[in-house]
Amino acid sequence: MSDIDTQRRQFLKTSAGAAAIAIAPGMMLYQTVRADTAAASSKVRWGMLIDTAQCKEGCNDCVTACNKENGLSGKTGATDSQWIRKIEIKDISNGHTVSLPMMCQHCEHPPCVDVCPTQASFKRADGIVLVDRHLCIGCRYCMMACPYKARSFVHETLTDQNPDVPRGKGTVESCSLCVHRIDKGQIPACAEACQNKAILFGDLNDANSEIYKKVRSAATVQIRADLQLNPGVRYQGL
């Protein structure tokens, strides 16, 4: 960050909050200057491109990194949260196998959002599909609606969560594309952890980004493209 930029932030930080006006006791009208991160922009569409040719069978690095980053137990029982899983698919006619990670596909038209009765499931302006746990009532409609089985329900009381990733009993959760990292300018933990560079993360709308160029030059597919949900996660070599 440039020098001027830092100073500006400092200035805004000290003046931020000064413009909150009390309009009635207990009711506030905020006019706070937003100094830290701007709102997610709809010009951006975050996505991932997964190259199954690079993804190694038996490797679980992305899953481990996700669990660590988001504070998941790593267990895979029926009632354990899994935000990303490794799956192996086999062509039974010739025995050819491919290995790939599956997670929330961050659809442009997410069925989970359509069915959610409380608007807890929502799509952020930059295409990230999230659960607002403050509103989630744990009905699990979204889990039934998701064609990718991407969501998990938290069954047990949790303690010692990562301060960046609040999560708790009675709500549904799924891959957040590491939204807390993205907002800091970092890439998702899984993409960072993959030594084989099988996960390419980027802005699908940015003509200068690697992912933008790659989806235009290589053959990539969306899983269950027939559902016309336009997922932000794409796969190569399927």
């Binding site: 930080k13 931020a16 909050g17 506030m28 905020y30 706070t32 937003r34 100094a35 830290d36 991160t37 701007a38 709102a39 997610a40 929502f122 952020r124 302006a125 930059d126 999230l130 607002d132 403050h134 609040p166 939204v179 907002d183």
Partner: peptide
């Protein structure tokens, strides 16, 4: 107020964060 701004819009104000 801050929770809605942060979770739904991605506006993170460091000093006012939980």
């Amino acid at each position: 107020h801050q929770r809605n701004e942060t979770v739904r819009k991605g506006v993170r104000v460091e000093a006012e964060a939980f």
